[in-house]
Design a protein around this nucleic acid. Structure first.
Lengths: 255, 255
DNA sequence: TCCCTCTTTTAGGCATCCCTAATTATAAAC
DNA sequence: GTTTATAATTAGGGATGCCTAAAAGAGGGA
């Protein structure tokens, strides 16, 4: 049975939240999907009937094996499209998520394969997120928040959150993109900014922004790889590879 | 106001039928859109309310200026996508229409522009159909049915219908694609096949198939132009240019 | 334990777009 | 001018997926 775009969206988001180690609640889903809670309840019931999630009223939500597979497929579509739009058509980083959200539901298997092949079967999207494989494997990120990074030492940005286009535009303007090398110079007290050095410039960075940046130790061994795109126009390269699994924390700091 | 995918589909088809000089009836629309006639009536009313078409019950249908603009925009999306899928991703001719039908509704203006630029602002899709310009101009075809072509003389295929994937696959296998040079050797009587010569081989071609092929005189002056695609994989080139307008006839031959 | 708050669900609707069955218009044939 | 076939419309429903308002559950604090 063919899933509707709405169902795909729900599954994708549920999958992402599980991945991030967050509890999947009605409200959280409503927020992420820009929908009201009653709509979520309705869809959760439908997905339960289809055995794509496990869920009981007032309880929390969990993907079944079938649901996980479907969710990863959508996520694969989404991330392949993002990378393709970036590499082949030169779209700016902060426009990718929105475009991919619309296109991901219209992608056939055949086209997915063609795109993956054109990109050289990449493993990371332009934000640094791992792209699930066709058979439903996804690399577990082993990075941590920039806010948790030791001061005075170089780190490499592995991924940035793609949820907020404006934030991305801002980070991009500072050069805070995947693969950039950053050093946290110091952190001002009382929720003050992080002073981060990137490309020989130091910028104050609000904690909220910093929380959307994930880094790894510069010293970690990397196997670099190019993405092998056919057509390209002004796009940075990607890095990365798997090491281990470790869900990242989730801290909604006030001011 | 944002048009729904269904509305876009209706407008696109109405526009195409007007273009082909055919009367736009409820039934014809139902057939083309794979929908039942009552559904068409309902949608026609809605489009009338939105001033996208002019229509009165039991009468026939006509695009308004706003409707024509919307229809051409969808058609532009459709044909740009077809060409892009062919040129950049190497999809086979007979898969293009179906893929584009799904993608055309998810294409932003920005992405449309990026694709058009990547293709070098092309004027023809892979089936040889003219691509409307961004400001709503569309070239009037000045070609005619292969069935009307003089015997023993060379013609160049300008466009083939894209409606039937199976037919396209067949035509492709015979080399009957846009830009191929064909000669009608003879036509057997009583609805018998056309014997067409293409690339030194002569094939019998049923009238039904032949009706989906449109040609021009070889002697007509052409300004050839490449399509300027960034990435390409095994695709034929395009030809063509405008000369005049002349709606093509429409003859549903019995055997 | 009871209350209060916050979350979630139920109830009831609306818009979109499709369907089948039944009715009405149109137009061609006698 | 009827009759009759065909085309188109109305009537009535169903599935999706969203909404608001109201009710119900869950959990913490006194």
């Amino acid at each position: 049975m063919r899933l509707s775009p709405a169902m795909e969206d729900y599954l994708k988001v549920i999958g992402q939240m599980e991945q991030e180690g967050r509890r999947v609640t009605t409200q959280a889903l409503a927020q992420r999907l820009k929908v009201k809670p009653p709509s979520v309840t309705g869809m959760l019931k439908k997905l339960t009937r289809l055995h794509l999630i496990r869920y009981s009223p007032y309880g929390s939500v969990e993907l079944t094996e079938a649901g996980r597979k479907a969710a990863l497929e959508v996520l694969r579509h989404h991330r392949l499209i993002e990378l393709y739009l970036r590499e082949a058509l030169g779209l700016p980083l902060h426009r990718l998520d929105e475009e991919a959200d619309r296109l991901e539901h219209a992608l056939s298997e055949e086209l997915e394969d063609a795109i993956a092949a054109a990109l050289g079967h990449p493993t990371r999207d332009p934000h640094g997120h791992p792209i699930p494989t066709k058979d439903g494997q996804i690399e577990q990120p082993d990075d941590f928040h920039l806010t948790d990074a030791e001061h005075g030492v170089g780190f490499v940005i592995v991924r940035v959150s793609d949820r907020d286009g404006e934030l991305l535009k801002y980070l991009e303007s500072l050069g805070l993109v995947p693969e950039a090398v950053v050093t946290v110079v110091r952190r001002d007290p009382f929720g003050g900014p992080l002073w981060v050095q990137v490309a020989d410039k130091t910028h104050p960075l609000g904690l909220e922004a910093a929380q959307h940046i994930f880094v790894r130790h510069l010293s970690d061994l990397e196997d670099r790889k190019e993405s092998g795109v056919t057509a390209s126009s002004a796009a940075p390269k990607r890095v990365r590879r798997k090491v281990a699994s470790l869900p990242s924390a989730d801290l909604p700091d006030p001011l």
